[in-house]
Design a protein around this nucleic acid. Structure first.
Lengths: 339, 339
DNA sequence: ATGAAAGCGCTAACAA
DNA sequence: TTGTTAGCGCTTTCAT
């Protein structure tokens, strides 16, 4: 059977209170006692039960991480740094991929609450804002990741999506592209990128039309689909700004299959700078999010929230960096004109 | 404060025992009672504590997943299917990336035991076999994933690595390559792939030398390093079989940077068939592991183990599939001879 | 059909 | 310095 604190106490000839003290390294006692107890714990291969200790009001030492899809490299890279930092801070993490599905959001949130996680890191956008509101009212620490909390009044760690969108678009615009399509997701972060897109258009003195925006969800297949859709409608622009690398890769693949040369016929800029951006050919021009710093920061913030009474409501914005690689080039049409 | 079973009982005007029964859907009681209690639970927003219930001998309903690195697409794709299936079966999963580091292996194993996970899925290879032996002796259900349990006598879910190695090598050999280098990891699965490699050599009537084997750990950077190392020593073969896609991609990148054409000058075969295999150019010839089926199966096996007294010890082997794409081609040298 | 009470493994006063 | 004891929120016999 499982070794309990009683077994240790008995074998060490002390009370369970004493054992508890050595486990938690609290209280005073003779050195010899501490040593003896530790020795017995060792011998018995004793592991204190986190369950039991959590039940007495201590923490469960686990974090809930909600992401849209852990198999999306952006989130798996993020998860990795979160996991590492969490472990450094003494916490484990339970992962949940919501697919941004309303039922799963609810289900996983409830599940994690039942498991009494010490805090939530929410990188998945919620359809039902009320769920988040409810969660907030429970006082369980929570931090939004990759999406500004905005109205919710909750701490968030994200990249400056507006600027990212602006930079990507400016890059394309200054390359002579005038007809650019932005492929966005249905999330707040995409919305901000669209605003950045719009702002860049206006700054450069061009006119922005809302029909430059295409919506989809993050996957290679969907990126390809968008490209084909444009092709069928004979509306292919000279450049595409995809709101994440997965979609961008899909566009690249679709282009290749249809004999469209990149970047000669079509320029593409992605977002995230995942591993995929460097392994594709041509390598992908994309907006980098500082994944490691963000992952580390989000854990530090949630740990602070767990340890302090007062929840913070700061909105932490990281700086995006445009990584110019090989899928973006000067608009041929403009070139010809100039020649 | 947190809503407990007592709050529900009080408000519903029943005892906690009754509430417990409706939670677990056990025992008999008047329909009206059950309904009333459920209504109160709803109103109070009551979530039974998994902690407390686990303490009374029930399960924690969580699985521990040990992988080398969750940001490796192979493992993140695997984690995704595991997570999904686990949730379907009512379990959550705590992820731990060990980096195949001896200290982390030990630390995470202990951590997960303290958290009383119901079972372990171990996809990370352990340096210290004794840890695994100890774990096994605790009777906590465990399943090895992507590595045959072999001597341990524990259930395992893996791909037939020997055949995978054999197929990849045969493919290359029959393409006229005689000098092939295999880049392997320090894991059991790699070892089996090497044996498959060796077997293919022998079957095809060629001579196998142990200096055809290079060792490294899974990363793009390491793959590139291996390529450069061969280059420096002027020992570049006409084909390389990398034991996973990450390494293969690194080799491709290294080759490109050094002006080596793929597949004209160098053929490459990877292993795993991750998302990377399709996004690189040329697309990667690789040995596919049925990730989804494996992930699903491993959860089903562990759940069975949790529910039954008797631990199983079956070794489940999935069939690998060679995906011939564009990084492997006929050896030029042989071609010329034939012409 | 319902409830009282013991106990799961641990923590934290409070006593001794 | 060490031990006693009352919970923590729940399950589960065993009474009623």
């Amino acid at each position: 059977m499982k070794v309990t604190i009683y077994d240790v106490a008995k074998k060490a000839g002390v009370s369970i209170a004493t054992v508890s003290k050595v486990i938690n390294n609290t209280g005073n006692m003779r050195d010899s006692t501490r040593t003896k107890v530790m020795k017995v714990m060792e011998e018995l291969n004793y592991y204190p039960s986190v369950m039991a200790s959590a039940l007495t009001g201590k923490r469960t030492q686990t974090l809930g991480l909600l992401v849209p899809d852990i198999s999306n490299p952006f989130f798996s890279e993020m998860a990795r740094t979160i996991e590492d930092r969490a472990h450094e801070r003494g916490l484990s993490v339970i992962m949940c991929s919501t697919d941004e599905d309303e039922d799963k959001e609810k289900k996983y949130l409830e599940l994690l609450r039942r498991k009494q996680v010490d805090g939530f890191i929410i990188a998945s956008s919620f359809h039902d804002k009320k769920l988040l509101q409810d969660l907030k009212s429970t006082q369980i620490p929570m931090v939004m990741l990759t999406q500004d909390a905005g109205s919710l009044g909750v701490t968030s760690v994200s990249v400056d999506d507006f600027t990212g969108g602006y930079d990507a678009t400016s890059h394309l615009l200054s390359l002579g592209h005038q007809k650019i399509v932005i492929i966005a997701e249905e999330r707040l972060s995409s919305k901000m990128r669209i605003y950045g897109f719009q702002e860049a258009y206006e700054t450069h003195g061009y006119e922005y039309h809302s029909d430059m925006v295409l919506r989809t969800t993050a996957s290679i297949a969907n990126g390809k689909k968008c490209l084909e859709q444009m092709l069928n409608r004979d509306e292919l622009p000279s450049a595409i700004f995809a709101c994440n690398d997965l979609i961008a890769i899909g566009v690249i693949q679709g282009a290749r299959e249809n004999g469209i040369r990149i970047p000669e016929d079509l320029s593409i800029v992605g977002f995230d700078n995942t591993i995929l951006a460097t392994t594709t050919v041509p390598s992908l021009t994309t907006v980098a999010q500082p994944i490691n710093e963000m992952g580390r920061k989000v854990v530090d913030v949630i740990v602070d929230n767990i340890n302090n009474e007062e929840p913070t409501t700061e909105r932490i914005l990281f700086k995006p960096t445009l990584m110019v690689r090989n899928t973006s080039a000067r608009n041929q049409y403009v070139n010809k004109k100039m020649v």
